[in-house]
C-alpha cells in the first residue's frame, strides 16, 4: 500500500574518519551476520537489518484512530568513515482481519505493519508527512537509537572535530506516476514524498538515505560557514573555523552513488530544482576562496613584513 521511513543522520563521534575495518566492528550488531561494505566510489558500510515490533496508532491526516501491528526494519550505516545514519522503514499493508494476530504471523512478514481495519492510503501518507501523533508509530525514535548504538561504541574516541545537530528525514513512498517532493521544515526536520512506478523495493529506502546524507552534508557545511562569520571576524579566525569542513566534509559529496539506476532520475530532478549540487558547489567554492584569500594574505604578510 505504502512505505514509511525515517532516516537520522549525524557526525560520527570520532576525531578522525574511521577505517573500513573499524566500520565493520562498530556495525556488527547481530551475531552470525556480516556487515556489508562497498568501497566504490566511497566506503559505505551497513549493519545487518534488525526488526523492532510495534502495535500502535498509525498517523492519519483525518485524525482517525487506525491501529497497526507488525515489524519495522532498521539499520545503521557509516559513509566515508565519517557520517553515520540510523534508518528505519516499514511497509504498511492491509490485513485480512480486524484482530491482532499471534506474533508469529507478523514475524513471517519482516518489515511489514498490517493495518487492523479499514484505511485509506492517502490519509495515512498525509498524516505521516505532516505531524504524526505523539502516541503513534515513532520511526524517528527507533532510527535515533540505531544512530546511538554507533555513537556509543567504545571503538570511537568521541572527540568529534565539531559539534553538529543530527538531521531527520521522514519519507513516504507510494505507487503511481513518478514524482518526488522534498520539504525543509525546521532546522533539523525534512520530509520526502515519493511516488514510484511498480512495486516498492528496498532501493527506494537506499535513495532516501542517500538524500538524507547529502542534505545533512549541506546543512553541516552551512552551519560551519555561518559559525566562521566570514567578513565579520578576522581572516585567520574564519579560516580556522572553516578548516573542519575541508578536513572532514568536502570530499564526501557523491550524490546518487548507491542509488539504483531506475531511481537516479529522482536525484537528477532534485538536482535541477532546488539544485542540491549547485548549492553545495557554491558553498565549497566559498570555503576554498576564503582559505585561498587567507593564505595569500598570510604569505604577503610573511614576505612583506620583513621588507617593511
Amino acid at each position: 500500500m505504502l512505505v514509511m521511513g525515517e532516516v537520522h543522520t549525524g557526525l560520527l563521534q570520532n576525531s578522525g574518519e574511521i577505517p573500513e575495518s573499524t566500520c565493520r566492528d562498530v556495525l556488527q550488531l547481530l551475531s552470525g551476520e556480516r556487515v556489508r561494505v562497498s568501497r566504490r566510489p566511497i566506503v559505505y558500510a551497513v549493519s545487518p537489518d534488525l526488526l523492532t515490533g510495534v502495535d500502535c496508532r498509525l498517523p492519519s491526516a483525518s485524525q482517525s484512530r487506525i491501529r497497526g501491528a507488525g515489524t519495522v526494519l532498521s539499520r545503521s550505516s557509516i559513509t566515508g568513515g565519517r557520517v553515520v545514519q540510523g534508518s528505519s522503514f516499514t511497509r504498511i499493508e492491509r490485513s485480512g482481519s480486524d484482530r491482532r494476530q499471534p506474533w508469529s504471523h507478523y514475524l513471517a512478514r519482516p518489515g511489514v505493519v498490517e493495518v487492523l481495519g479499514k484505511v485509506k492510503s492517502r490519509d495515512l501518507a498525509d498524516g505521516f508527512a505532516e505531524d504524526p501523533p505523539a502516541d503513534g508509530l515513532d520511526l524517528g525514535a527507533i532510527s535515533a537509537r540505531f544512530l546511538d548504538v554507533v555513537q556509543s561504541s567504545p571503538l570511537l574516541d568521541r572527540r568529534a572535530p565539531f559539534k553538529i545537530a543530527r538531521t531527520r528525514l521522514r519519507w513516504v513512498a507510494e505507487e503511481g506516476e513518478p514524482a518526488i517532493r522534498f520539504t525543509l521544515h525546521s532546522e533539523q526536520m525534512r520530509t520526502v514524498r515519493l511516488v514510484h512506478t511498480g512495486e516498492f523495493t528496498p532501493a527506494v529506502a537506499d535513495l532516501c538515505e542517500d538524500l538524507a546524507l547529502h542534505d545533512w552534508l549541506l546543512t553541516a557545511l552551512l552551519v560551519i560557514i555561518e559559525r566562521a562569520r566570514i567578513g565579520g571576524t578576522p581572516g585567520p579566525e574564519a579560516a580556522v573555523k572553516l578548516a573542519p569542513a575541508v578536513d572532514h566534509l568536502l570530499h564526501l559529496w557523491m550524490p546518487s552513488a548507491r542509488v539504483d539506476d531506475v531511481l537516479s532520475a529522482y536525484w537528477e530532478s532534485l538536482d535541477r530544482r532546488p539544485g542540491f549540487t549547485r548549492q553545495w558547489q557554491s558553498l565549497v567554492d566559498r570555503v576554498r576562496d576564503q582559505l585561498a584569500v587567507h593564505t595569500l594574505a598570510f604569505l604577503r604578510e610573511k614576505s612583506g613584513g620583513g621588507a617593511r
Binding site: G10, D148, R158, A165, R166
Partner: peptide, 12 residues
Amino acid sequence: VQLFSRLDEEFD
C-alpha cells in the same frame, strides 16, 4: 545517559 550522549554530540 542517552540524553547526555545526544546533547554532547550537538552542543559545545
